Computed example of a mutant assay.
Amino acid sequence: MAKLTAQVRIPASDRQIAALERIDKEDFSLVIYRTKKAFDEREIHHPESFFEDGITSLKQYYCTTIFDPHNCHAVADNLDRFWHEHVLDTARYSILCRDLKGFMHHDPLDRRNLDKVAAIGQVYLYTYKVLTKIFGKKNLNENFFPEKPEIDILVCRHDVHPIPDAEVKWDDVLPVDKTIEKIRAQYGNQAKISEIEEQLKKRNSGNGV
């Protein structure tokens, strides 16, 4: 499995190189075991190469946090299965996010919200463009990064909450994309937090709290 530093096709700062090396040091053995188990339980049996490629793709996806933290991103179904298993190991996942100086929030897609589904479709196409820029199209696995996916395999959004650190200026990253900025303002993590807090306030008010 090639190191991330050998895969990246764009200039990287010292901070970014250190972050790439940190991702490569992550132990994904439990992710592979649990993802394979989940597929087996559904009687879907993939070769070992599928799981190796899945981890490579997950590591590539995490690189959006290193190179493009100010925009939100989206993943398709196969890759999301690997990400789920990593997120569920909360201690390990939170330590990785801490070390990358940005918590990668996972937001499952509510398919009842058709406007959000369409917006996440736009976000995914943006993500694919960014990953193509970072790694080159030929280095993205079609099983995990389909170029033109059907909308029903897009399953979640992620955006990064930077962890305050006086030594990290985030001045070596891609600029804010205006289209993605509008989507993030409506459907991003901070917008969702505000929505949940407003719902709780109304419920508390209704209960006389």
Rank of each mutant, 00 (worst) to 15 (best):
A6W: 05
R9Y: 00
R9C: 14
I10W: 07
A12Y: 09
R22V: 12
I23R: 05
I23A: 08
I23K: 08
D24A: 15
D24H: 12
D27R: 10
S29N: 12
I32N: 03
I32L: 07
T35K: 00
K36N: 11
K36R: 12
K37L: 15
K37D: 13
F39G: 12
D40T: 11
E41F: 12
E43C: 14
I44V: 15
H45W: 11
H46W: 14
P47S: 07
E52A: 13
E52V: 15
I55K: 05
T56S: 15
Q60P: 09
Y62P: 02
Y62V: 01
C63Y: 02
C63F: 00
T64H: 07
I66Q: 01
F67W: 04
D68L: 06
P69R: 00
H70K: 11
H70P: 03
C72W: 01
H73E: 03
V75I: 15
D77F: 15
D77Y: 12
N78P: 04
L79V: 07
D80H: 06
D80S: 01
W83A: 03
H86V: 09
V87C: 14
L88P: 00
D89K: 07
A91K: 09
A91N: 11
A91Q: 11
Y93Q: 03
R98T: 12
R98K: 13
R98V: 04
K101T: 06
F103R: 04
M104Q: 06
R111A: 04
L114C: 12
D115I: 01
K116Y: 09
V117Q: 05
A118W: 02
A118Y: 03
I120F: 06
Q122C: 08
Y126R: 02
T127S: 09
T127F: 05
V130L: 08
L131Q: 04
T132P: 10
I134H: 05
F135H: 09
K138G: 09
N143D: 14
F145M: 08
P146H: 07
P146V: 13
E147P: 02
K148V: 15
P149L: 00
I151D: 02
L154K: 05
V155D: 00
P162Q: 05
I163W: 03
P164K: 00
D165E: 05
E167T: 15
V168W: 08
K169G: 04
D171N: 14
D172W: 08
V173D: 04
V173G: 06
P175T: 06
K178T: 06
K178F: 01
I180T: 06
I180Y: 01
I183V: 03
Q186D: 11
Y187M: 00
G188E: 02
Q190N: 10
K192E: 03
I193W: 03
I193F: 07
E195R: 03
E195K: 03
E195I: 01
I196T: 06
E198N: 11
Q199K: 14
K201L: 10
N204S: 13
S205L: 14
N207H: 09
G208K: 12
